[in-house]
Design a protein around this nucleic acid. Structure first.
Length: 819
RNA sequence: GCGGGCGUAGCCGAACUGGUAUAGGCGCCAGAUUUAGGAUCUGGUCGGCGCAAGCCGGUGGGGGUUCGAGUCCCUCCGCCCGCACCA
């Protein structure tokens, strides 16, 4: 018997045992229909890179604790896990090492599943989703066809960002940084003109700016708002003087400055350029166009570069003033934003100002800054003011002028108010093998033909050849590419050989978890009615404008298809931070600062590793790994172990106050921990539990035999259960409690019991703390005041002084103000 | 340039609606135990002055509001992130 009592806490000895037991008992399986209220707790699924690193643990272990907490609170919690299994690394492995992407991916998934199991998380593996499984990607194709039917998927020739290393096009969001590099491999991207498939996310631009009904971090909202880039303005039709009947549109957010337009600028690629260019100017224009096409975006967009352009030889007419103005082309005007043409208003736009200076164009003032006396501008004036040199609008404040000019233009049919977005449609074509085939057939007779639904899935052929050609390996796969036209039966038809961006998968994977085997649709609508939408989503901030925008778009499309009756996929979102190496840098093999989870588990056990990740810093911040910090958490778990294992000294009933004090501490701790867990404040929840453990340790010798003390210990284990699930289960069992602690209710607290009976009343004189006295928490203000004034130390300080005021904060503080 | 965030001990951090600044952990110091080291336990640990009681200072700098400011306002400094010729 004695040897058992003295047994030390050895995590490795208990963790595997409980993991096996929980799995055998299907403890983590969430039934689809259940009297309990449901809680769909989702954590971003990983890419199966082959190794589970500390970053995965940081994202997953604390969210597991939060999910466990919800389950103990009485919810039927669905906590699924899967793999984002399509994507470039698998294909690169195929090219570099001759391993088939499928083989590579599946081997990685196997390995990662094993590693994930060591975490002791409550994932419902019966719901696992692997996106490269045809059972999954067939629904990508199904969704695509639905969108195609509705005009939400379309094909267009477009200049795309192209990664020359990965040999594929990239979505705009996948091009990062000042150097405009591929987010995956860091290679500078180039522009390429290709026929590409797009999803019409811009249709939902306005709705995507609306966040009512969901609790998402402001940070994410701001990033998305910034990305969508809404701006209100007026689209003005500018007639071309030299080609009667011809005109082009410009977009401006400052219609009030229209009288100040002294030139117009088209993007070099603007379709009207060829027509407008006069023969004298042709050579110069062509040279400029050539130069602009060759320049990479980085040079072109550089603010260092001097603004330049070329006169086309043609003139436009300012539709408000009737004046003729020269038309230029310049690469500071982007074809991809607005109309690809602008009004040149040098007085009130800094770029136009520089351009006008360079080419000697007039720079009239049409919005007079306050106090302006007619002098020339040193730089563009961007603020508000009074309209001048603006015909009938002279003297009008510019803000009012904005509206009046917009109205006048609408009345005269020369302009209309318009909202412009920086958001572009989502480019989903990838010239790669390892993705979902786009279910489209090009027929010589019928043109673009969608694959009929009954022919789905369009399967990825296994026997493709992997060559880094810049085109999909599917293009060289005769058996895949050549196909009969499903419409006319003709043999002169070819399949689309591009595959879909993997962000398509993650846009709706959360719905597949509901019923991963379901064959009649992307998910079982009955099951969906119970579980949806996702109650809590957690993941990294890096997905703020990619995945998180796409999945909101996708859900809105699903709503419009009648598949769901809500428009927001996730009610609450929480972003965890990033764990860095001990040196404060991002963990990377080349730096040698990687903290390997498997090593940590071998050394401390999964529970310690989990608890430390939660304790080291606020979860939303992340930060450097502290090699010694984990020791402190490990010690804490040891202390819990000995607290629960070493027999208590026999009951020594003392004064009644003991039981009350234990109960008070217990309830106060439950309150703190409950509130912190609900808000993902794991670090402070654990700090509160540490204090509680310290308290139980200090009182053990005196009160250890008391039933109230034993109850406190039991409560402690329940609160530790989400954080260190194995340890809690083990001690629970050893304490003779029925299996499983994880099926027990979270302890509830009574705020009355949590309240201290005696409090320290702080006594200040002129705002400085001068004394502290122990009083009943329920002390009346008048009594508190009297006690404060009676304090020896206060009397010394107030002697001979006039007391101007006494401020009493009930149960906390008395401040005596001397005049 | 535009948008956002942050700055508290030697380190990571805590502090609800303004009300005892520094909880909890790490580290460090001392003690107990031990042949020793390690582990464990106990106590101490913001700075200055003081034998002590105590006094003074203290949340990046400066100013303000308030009986009272880490918290609110203004301003400056430093660091971080996102977007960026977006018309």
């Amino acid at each position: 018997m004695k040897t058992v009592e003295r047994e030390r806490y050895e995590a490795q000895a208990i963790e595997g045992k409980w993991q096996a037991r929980w799995e055998a008992d299907r403890l983590s399986h969430a039934p689809d229909f259940d009297p309990r209220p449901k809680f769909y707790f989702l954590t971003m699924y990983p890419y199966p890179s082959g190794d589970l690193h500390t970053g995965h643990w940081y994202a997953m272990a604390p969210s597991d604790a939060a999910a466990r907490f919800r389950r103990m609170q009485g919810f039927n919690v669905m906590f699924p896990m899967g793999f984002d299994a399509f994507g470039l690394p698998a294909e690169n492995a195929a090219i570099e090492r001759g391993i088939h992407p499928y083989t590579w991916t599946m081997a990685n998934i196997d390995r990662m599943r094993r590693q994930l199991r060591s975490m002791g998380a409550m994932w419902d593996w019966e719901r696992e989703v692997v996106t490269c499984d045809p059972d999954f990607y067939v629904w990508n194709q199904w969704f695509f066809l639905k969108m195609y039917e509705r005009g939400l998927a379309y094909r267009a020739m477009a200049p795309v960002d192209w990664c020359p290393k990965d040999n594929t096009s990239l979505a705009r969001e996948q091009v990062v940084g000042d150097e405009r590099v591929c987010e995956r491999c860091g290679t500078p991207v180039i522009k390429k003109n290709l026929e590409q498939w797009f999803l019409k996310i811009t249709t939902y631009a306005e709705e995507l700016l609306e966040y009512s009904g969901i609790e998402w971090p402001d940070r994410v909202r701001l990033l998305q708002e910034n990305w969508i880039g809404r701006s209100e303005g007026v689209e003005i039709t500018i007639p071309v003087r030299d080609h009667p009947g011809r005109s082009f549109d410009v977009f401006t957010t400052r219609p009030d400055t229209v009288f100040g337009m002294t030139f117009a600028v088209l993007a070099p690629e603007h379709p009207l350029v060829d027509l407008l260019t006069t023969s004298e100017q042709r050579a110069e224009v062509e040279a400029y166009k050539f130069k602009a096409a060759r320049a990479s975006d980085i040079e072109r967009l550089s603010t260092e570069k001097e603004r330049d352009g070329v006169f086309t030889g043609a003139h436009a007419i300012n539709p408000m003033s009737g004046e003729a103005v020269p038309i230029y082309i310049a690469d500071y005007v982007l074809l991809t934003y607005g109309t690809g043409a602008i009004q040149g208003v040098p007085g009130h736009d800094q770029r136009d100002f520089e351009f006008a200076r360079k080419y000697g164009l007039p720079i009239p003032v049409v919005i007079a800054p306050p106090g302006w006396a007619g002098e020339a501008l040193e730089q563009a004036y961007l603020g508000e003011g009074t309209m001048v040199n603006s015909g009938e609008f002279d003297g009008v404040p510019s803000a009012e002028g904005w509206r009046r000019i917009a109205e006048a233009m609408e009345r005269r049919g020369i302009g209309r108010r318009k909202v412009n977005y920086r958001l572009h449609d989502w480019l989903i074509s990838r010239q790669r093998y390892w993705g979902t085939p786009i279910p489209i057939i090009y027929c010589q007779t019928c043109g673009t033909v969608p694959v009929p639904q009954e022919d789905l899935p369009v399967l990825l052929p296994h026997d493709a050849e992997f060559r880094p050609t810049g085109e999909s390996p599917l293009k060289y796969h005769e058996g895949f590419r050549t196909v009969r036209c499903p419409q006319c039966g003709g043999e002169e038809a070819e399949r689309e050989t591009d595959t879909m961006d993997t962000f398509v998968d993650s846009s709706w994977y959360q719905y597949r978890y509901l019923s991963p085997g379901y064959g009649d649709g992307p998910f079982d609508p009955h099951v969906a009615r119970y579980w949806l939408p996702v109650d809590q989503y957690t993941g990294g901030i890096e997905h703020a404008v990619l995945h998180l925008l796409y999945t909101r778009f996708w859900t809105k499309v699903m709503r419009d298809l009648g598949l769901v009756d809500f428009g927001e996929p996730m009610l609450r979102l929480y972003n965890q931070g990033i764990v860095l190496g001990p040196d404060g840098y991002r963990m990377s093999k080349s730096r040698g600062n990687v903290v390997d989870p498997d090593e940590q588990i071998a050394r401390y056990g999964a529970d310690t590793f989990r608890a430390y990740l939660m304790f080291m810093r606020p979860w939303n911040e992340g930060g450097p790994w502290d090699t010694q910090g984990i020791e402190g958490v490990h010690r804490w778990l040891h202390r819990i172990w000995s607290l629960a294992r070493v027999p208590a000294s026999p009951a020594r009933p003392r004064e009644n106050g003991n039981a009350r004090e234990i109960r008070r501490r217990t309830h106060a701790t439950i309150k703190r921990v409950t509130e912190d867990m609900a808000e993902f404040h794991f670090n402070t929840a654990i700090a509160a539990l540490m204090e509680f453990v310290n308290f139980l340790g200090e009182t053990k010798d005196r009160w250890g035999g008391h039933h109230e003390w034993a109850a406190a210990l039991r409560t402690l284990l329940l609160m530790v259960a989400p954080i260190a699930p194995h340890l809690a289960e083990e001690l629970w069992a050893r304490g003779g409690e029925p299996y499983s602690i994880h099926q027990h209710s979270w302890p509830s607290f009574d705020p009355e019991l949590a309240r201290a009976e005696r409090v320290t009343l702080v006594i200040q004189v002129n705002g400085k703390v001068r004394d502290r006295i122990e009083v009943s928490a329920a002390i009346a203000d008048a009594d508190a005041k009297a006690l404060a004034l009676a304090s020896e130390r206060v009397r010394r300080l107030t002697a001979g002084r006039r007391i101007a005021d006494v401020i009493v904060v009930p149960g906390r503080l008395v401040n005596i103000v001397l005049s």
